[in-house]
Design a protein around this nucleic acid. Sequence first.
DNA 1: CATTTCACCTGGTGGC
DNA 2: TGCCACCAGGTGAAAT
Length: 274
Amino acid sequence: MPELPEVETVARGVDERVHGDRIVEVWFSSYPQPFKTSAARQHRGLAGRKIVAVHRTGKHIVCELGENKKSIEAQWVVHLGMTGRLLVTTPEAPVAKHTHARLELKSGKELRFVDPRRFGRLEFRDLKKNGAFAAAGAEPLTIEPEAFAALFRGRTLAIKAALLNQSLLTGVGNIYADESLFHAGIRPRRAAGRLTRAELERLRVALVQVLEASIRKGGSSVSDYVDATGVRGFYQLEHRVYQRGGEPCHSCATPIERILVAGRGTHFCPKCQK
DNA sequence: CATTTCACCTGGTGGC
DNA sequence: TGCCACCAGGTGAAAT
């Protein structure tokens, strides 16, 4: 479900509703997979802490914990995987199947992590011991043109595979890789290192435009993505190629092709993309 | 090292 | 209605 625009939408929604609130009680499911940090250690770290702010880094949601913004002591880092949801609810709201974490807040609200496939991850970081969370790759919304081009220099892998590599760029997933390549007019199987400087700049600009447009629409709800309050996004209505295999291209009416690149379903227009 | 493949999970869909 | 194959927003380990 969640790539940069979806994670940004969730992080903003959670921040609006819980910043300044204090965690008074913590509950975790017994499935070990979602816990990058053991449930016991997260429990000790989270209970009693105040959530100062919530924001996005790449595809991660970072909850800053401390007494105020100038004294952050710890972080709770949430990765939604494919099907994760981070929801702000009332305590009475029915607990959804596959709920793995419930943080009861002083205000009476609850912060819940729900994840059917359990590909998501929850991590607790003590800043003194572990340091602050940092993504490996660059932020696509702010990277400079020169640095963006340098990411792909000399690489033989497909440009689509390179876009998905989180240690190069952080936050781009299958939807926005396909959509940005369409808007830039570049075929997904092209070797990353063979793109011209002009093509790379078209790609960077397309990526920024697509990601920002999607954030404005609350992200893409292809099947089950919802924001922090359970509301779906609308950017799926703007998709030009993603999951449109066989359907006519909106620009030239040529049927959109679906192929496999880096093991992922990949969609492109054979006429508009060179 | 760079690149590719596969396993990790549940659930929805479409064919028979 | 049931069974089965296939597909899905991600990522890290193992293989090549």
